[in-house]
Each structure stands twice: as structure tokens, then as C-alpha cells.
Simulated scan of single mutants.
Amino acid sequence: MFSNIRAVLFDLDGTLIDSAPDLGAAADKMRTDRGLPSLPLERYRPMAGAGARGMLGEAFSMTPDHPEFAAMREEFFLNYESQMTTRTLVFEGVAELVEKILHRNMVWGVVTNKAARFTDPLTRAIPLFVSAGAVVSGDTTPHAKPHPAPLLEAASRLNIAPDQCIYVGDDERDIVAGLAAGMSTVAATYGYLGVKTNPMEWGAHATIKSPVELLQLLSRT
């Protein structure tokens, strides 16, 4: 199943890093600035994978068709930019996983729907990403996931054929994009799965409950 793999590509939020605390804090500040009570992180965490849409939906029950959504989203973005690395941490086991990938003479990279406005400073601030061979953001190509274009761009930057790549993500759109790109796919069930989703139904080639479990799959390559 995982033969002849030369590269591992990852989603970012919920797969490599736990950014929910900073995302939630950015939305929660909008509440407290308006005199509303703070909400616990547990309310925000399941929606972290949905970015501004998820955070504003949880904080204000606001949907993208709301007339004030664009302005509120920019306020959220500004709050988040000011504290992107305050509480964000690399998931336990990720550093070991990346080290093992490199030790096997493989390369790795990131494909996220996060805009470069946030991806670039965030990855520059976290030492883990120094060894990443490619970092592709949601606005790097004309299409974001679940379109395969960002994944194909990452494979191109690594100079590796898509069918020699594994893509790991914690959202169904990650698996859809990976399959469309002709890559092997792995669902990370420790990420931001939301409240109404079953990763076993996404069609991934494999699932993992922790980052280091990927090493067992890589041992088959």
C-alpha cells in the first residue's frame, strides 16, 4: 500500500500543530471586547479546522452570508496575527516523526488552506519547519483543498511524483485532495475532527491516532 514513498506531506493546523488555543483566543477577544462572556477553549477546539468561519460561528453564531461577516473576519485575522505563536504548540510526537522521515532520506512538506499571510510567519517562528522542503498555503495556487492543485504544487517543488507522496490530514477535504492528486492518504484522527464527522468514511488509505503511528506505516515503504 505504501510502496516507493519518497515524501510525506502534511496539513498544518490539527495535524502538525495545535493552533486551537490561539485561534480560539482571537475569536474570544472579539467577544470580551463587546462585553460578552468568555467561552472555554473546549467550545472552539472542534471548529479550529474551519478557520475564521468556524471561530466566528462558535463565538457569534455568525455564518459567511451575514452582512458583517467580512468585517468581523478581518478583525479576527488581526487578532490572530498578533498572537499566532502565543499558545500554539507542535503536537507531541511530530518532532520525532519528522526526524525519522529525514533519517530515512525522505523529504517532507506542508500543504495548508491557511493563507500565506499567516502560514509564512507562523512556520518561520517554529524551528520544526526549517527542514520542510515545501510549504504551500491556501492561496499559493488558484485553488485550495479539496482541489488537488496545492498538493501537486508541493510535489512539484519537491521534484517528486505525486504517487511517491503520502498526504496526512485531519479533515475530509485533505483526503479528497490527496486522492485526487494520486497520493497515498492518511487521516489523522487526533486533530480537529469537528462534531459531526467520521474519518473512517473519508476513504483514506489508513488512519492514525497519533503522529508517531505514521512511522509504522512508513516502515512498509
Rank of each mutant, 00 (worst) to 15 (best):
T32L: 11
R117A: 09
A144L: 15
N113W: 07
A177Q: 08
V98W: 01
L217V: 01
Y44L: 14
D170Q: 15
R34Q: 14
A59Y: 06
A181V: 11
F10H: 04
A161G: 11
I175A: 08
L78G: 10
A20H: 04
K209L: 06
V195P: 06
A52G: 14
H147A: 15
P150K: 12
G182T: 06
P150G: 14
R53L: 11
G93H: 00
L16A: 04
M200K: 06
E153C: 14
A204K: 02
L16M: 08
A20C: 07
R220S: 03
G138I: 12
L151M: 13
E81C: 02
L193P: 05
T140E: 14
G194P: 11
P162G: 13
S219F: 05
S156I: 08
M47L: 13
T123Q: 06
G51F: 09
G49M: 14
G194Y: 08
A187L: 07
L128E: 10
F69T: 11
K114R: 12
W202S: 07
G93I: 01
D171E: 15
G191V: 05
E74S: 12
R6A: 06
L41W: 10
R117E: 08
R31M: 14
N198Y: 07
G178S: 12
F129I: 08
H205S: 00
A95M: 00
T119D: 05
F129K: 05
A188C: 10
F129L: 10
G191H: 02
F91G: 04
E201M: 06
M47T: 12
A188L: 08
R43M: 14
P64L: 12
G203Q: 05
G133A: 10
H147S: 15
A206V: 03
P127A: 14
L158N: 07
V107H: 03
A59M: 13
F10I: 03
V130D: 12
T88G: 00
Y192S: 05
P162Q: 12
G191S: 04
H147N: 15
I208A: 03
G57E: 12
Q216E: 04
A206M: 07
S210D: 03
L128D: 10
A70K: 14
E75H: 14
